[in-house]
Structures are given as structure tokens and as C-alpha cells.
């Protein structure tokens, strides 16, 4: 064991204290997660009912008679008093029964599963690609901040933050699809991922769009965290104890720098997921976002509730995973209980 490792151990504290607090923290955090989910469901229910309009309208056209309107309202249950609707909503939710769509009459869970097969790969691939771009460039921008290319990376990333994501999408389509004819401009194959080749090519431009935009802000965080590490006492100490600069940076700097970045990444991943809504529209992808937009237009309550409930769950889970990862990476946080870092 070299000197710097000994030093790191002193900071982390005794090893046997590691597992129990993490377990307790996880449990506490899970309770909070379930509670947040319940609150989100109630808020959702209320907000949806506050919107003007009626879900029965989506089933009807101009020319419908009074009797037809009444029958449509009875079919979707919008003629019931709010408290009756609320009780059935909560009791179904407790059984994880998201119901069937008013309009398409398809099972909401099944449909969400179908849509997630587009949105999840899009989010995850976009996020990973953004990380691959942002981490090395962010570190270079910090370490070489005095060089012209370090400054250039900084400036370009600032520009990236300012550009709206749909605009990047349109630019990429115009370049790669319309002018160069290299990639499809949008849409998703009828057979989905069973047609792996076409499905993958359909994903390239959307993933590229997300990763370009997301990497710009991520790069800023990585750069800031790295700059902080560079100016830290422990890095200087590690250097003094004989580590080379890259060795010190990788062994001590990365882990320390990662702590603030991870909590930001949790938020970024969640916003990548939500940003996929916009991207799905630009590229006409059959994901969760396009399902949600249509469901809102039609006041298709089961679909809206289902999508928002699952999205909330995913976002909460991402936050949960980020907090947990942060505690694994940084032992100092483990004793601090359930509060946000």
C-alpha cells in the first residue's frame, strides 16, 4: 500500500461502519419514495380534473346526440362524482392496475411497456453517449483551461447549452437525412426492435441529438468539478507524496470530483428522460412522450395517469439510485441519514 491510500483511509473512516448505515438509508429512502409517489398520484388526479373538457369527448364527433353524449360519459365514468372516481383510482393504483385507455381500449400497462421499448433505449443511449462526450472533454477543458483548445471546448459547450434541443434535431435531420441521405429523418419500423437494423438506424439521429445537447451541460459540471479537484489540498499532498500528476488525478481526483457530478447526473438523466418527449415529436417516434401528448389532448385519463405515474416512478428511482451511488462513492455521506446531500 502506498502512502496516498493510507491517507484516503483516514478520511473514509473505519470500514465496518460501511454496510449498516447504507441499508438503513436505503430503507428510509424507499419509504420516502413511496410517499412521494402517492403524493404525485393525488396531485395528478386533481390537476387532470381541473382541466376543462371531458374524456368522453374523444369518443364523440360533431353530430352526436344528447343520448350518445350521456352514454359516452357513462362508459368512461366521467358522470360519476369526483370522490367515487378518486376512490376507484386509488384502489386500482394500489393493485398496480393502471386500467385501459378510454379511447383505444388497450391496456395502459401493455401500451406503456410498448412505448418504453422506444423511450428507455433512447434515454439510456443518449445519456451514455453524452457521458462519453462530456467526461473526457470536461476534464481536458479543466486541466488545459489555459490552452486554446481548453477554452474552445468551454465556449462551444456554453453554446450547446443555449441551443434548444428540437432545433438541434431539425439541423441534424436536414444535414444527415435530407442532404446526405445517410439516415432516416424520423419514424420507427412497424416491427419495432424485431427489425433490429432499421430500429437501430432510426435511433441514431435522436440519440445523437440528445447526447449533443445533454453533453454540453454535463461538460460544464465535469469541468467545474475537475477545476475544484485541481486546486485541492489533497491533490497537492498526493503529488508531494510522490504520485505523478495523472496518477494523482485518476486515483484521488476522479473519486472526489465524481461526488457532486453524480448528484447532478441523476438530475440530468431524469431530464434526459423527460426531454425525450420533445425528441420523440421531432422524429415521430412512438415513445412515451408522444403517447402522453395525445392522451392529454384527448383527456384520456387512464393513459395520462399511467404515463405520468410511471415517469414519476422512474424519475424518483433515478434520484434514489443517484443518492445511493453517491453514498457508495463518498463514505463521508453515509452517516448523514436520509436528507439530500
Amino acid at each position: 500500500m502506498s502512502g496516498p491510500y493510507q491517507w484516503a483511509r483516514i478520511v473514509s473512516g473505519p470500514q465496518n461502519r460501511k454496510t449498516r448505515p447504507i441499508l438503513a438509508y436505503t430503507l428510509r429512502r424507499l419509504v420516502i419514495l413511496l410517499f412521494s409517489l402517492l403524493v404525485a398520484a393525488v396531485v395528478l388526479f386533481i390537476l387532470l380534473r381541473l382541466l376543462p373538457g371531458d374524456p368522453a369527448n374523444a369518443l364523440l364527433g360533431v353530430g352526436a346526440t344528447e343520448a350518445q353524449i350521456a352514454s359516452a360519459r357513462a362508459q368512461v365514468g366521467s358522470d360519476q362524482p369526483l370522490y367515487v372516481q378518486f376512490i376507484s383510482f386509488i384502489s386500482n393504483l394500489a393493485r398496480f392496475d393502471l386500467g385501459t385507455s378510454f379511447v383505444s381500449r388497450a391496456s395502459v400497462v401493455e401500451e406503456i411497456g410498448n412505448r418504453l421499448s422506444v423511450t428507455l433505449p433512447l434515454t439510456i443511449l443518449g445519456f451514455v453517449a453524452a457521458l462519453i462526450i462530456a467526461v473526457p472533454l470536461g476534464i481536458i477543458a479543466a486541466v488545459r483551461s489555459t490552452k486554446w483548445y481548453g477554452a474552445a471546448i468551454s465556449v462551444i459547450s456554453q453554446l450547446g447549452i443555449a441551443i434548444p434541443v428540437f432545433w438541434v434535431g431539425i439541423l441534424l435531420v436536414s444535414l444527415f437525412a435530407i442532404n446526405l441521405r445517410l439516415l432516416p429523418s424520423g419514424g420507427f419500423p412497424l416491427k419495432g426492435w424485431a427489425n433490429l437494423g432499421e430500429a437501430s438506424t432510426a435511433m441514431i439521429l435522436p440519440v445523437l441529438t440528445i447526447s449533443l445537447v445533454m453533453s454540453a451541460s454535463m461538460l460544464r459540471y465535469v469541468r467545474a468539478a475537475t477545476l475544484e479537484v485541481l486546486g485541492s489540498d489533497y491533490l497537492r499532498t498526493a503529488r508531494a507524496l510522490g504520485s505523478s500528476f495523472p496518477e494523482a488525478l485518476i486515483r484521488h481526483g476522479l473519486r472526489n470530483g465524481a461526488v457532486p457530478v453524480i448528484s447532478i447526473l441523476g438530475i440530468e438523466l431524469a431530464s434526459t428522460f423527460l426531454g425525450a418527449v420533445v425528441i420523440e415529436r421531432v422524429f415521430s417516434l412512438p415513445g412515451l412522450g408522444s403517447m402522453l401528448l395525445l392522451a392529454i389532448q384527448q383527456r384520456d385519463y387512464p393513459n395520462v395517469q399511467g404515463v405520468l405515474f410511471i415517469s414519476t416512478l422512474l424519475v424518483l428511482l433515478i434520484g434514489f439510485a443517484a443518492d445511493l451511488t453517491q453514498r457508495i462513492v463518498d463514505p463521508r455521506l453515509r452517516d448523514r441519514g436520509a436528507g439530500t446531500p
Partner: peptide, 10 residues
Amino acid sequence: EEWRRGSALS
């Protein structure tokens, strides 16, 4: 033949 909601119908 096939219908994929949100995408296409053949």
C-alpha cells in the same frame, strides 16, 4: 397485417 400504435399500420 400489423398495427403498432404510434407508428404504423400495414
